[in-house]
Design a protein around this nucleic acid. Structure first.
Lengths: 115, 115
DNA sequence: TTGACCTGCAACCGATCGATTGCAGGAGGA
DNA sequence: TCCTCCTGCAATCGATCGGTTGCAGGTCAA
């Protein structure tokens, strides 16, 4: 164990933007094209396209060509997988710091008995 | 239900940086001061201090003054809470898109029967 | 074939970010 | 008291980011 945490910073960076969350919220309810998204959000279509590229690179959005348009949809399973990893790390911190606190407590108890 | 997702972008932005993950990794195993962290990582103490401010604002790190130094520790429970929220959103996407797919499937089935 | 519509590429701009250096200030030990 | 150690604030710099405008290309319908 120990060693590097191997954090999925790319996915986290993709999620650290309000406009991308607005896009994901829309794509989570129904698959849409970039133009549809641009019509529903207060940014240009090109900005949407850049955000979709980031989200797709992070594995949070999936795209399918349909005729002359491209439909995008959110991939919930990958978000849940990321959540699992974060939860595991959080629990690890908790257990480690708990153990340290317990050791300090025991040491303090011995000091009290001795002193 | 429906409505806005209310994503904790501040916490996600705090986690979207490799140096901050390196800091969290160290603080997850044992509480440390900013100077200790600077000695173990390849960045200056001031950079560490800025990162700690970001992490503390996001509720991922807790700080306690001890004499002339300040000891910082990672808060695992808050990371797990964030993970729970992400997981819930991911499952929501999955169920919604599943329902849409099922409706499309039923519609296609009816078409086949009729045609 | 022509025209409408949607995507994709490139250049550009202002703002924010990660990081550095330099200096001031406060707490403890000799 | 003096010196050392650690923190905190400010200014600065290059890089990246979110967003825009403009234009080229491809696909469908009339």
């Amino acid at each position: 164990m120990s060693g590097a945490i191997a954090a999925p910073t790319q996915q986290l960076a993709a999620l650290a933007d309000d406009t991308r969350w607005a896009i994901l919220e829309l794509l989570g309810s129904r698959a849409r094209s970039a133009s549809e998204l641009a019509a529903e959000l207060p940014v240009s279509r090109q900005a949407i396209a850049k955000h979709l590229a980031v989200l797709e690179a992070a594995g949070l959005v999936e795209s399918t060509r349909e005729g002359r348009s491209v439909r995008h949809r959110a991939i919930g399973a990958n978000l849940s997988a990321l959540a699992d990893r974060l939860d595991a790390i959080g629990r690890q911190w908790e257990s480690r710091l708990e153990r340290v606190a317990r050791m300090a407590e025991e040491r303090a108890g011995a000091e009290r008995e001795r002193g």
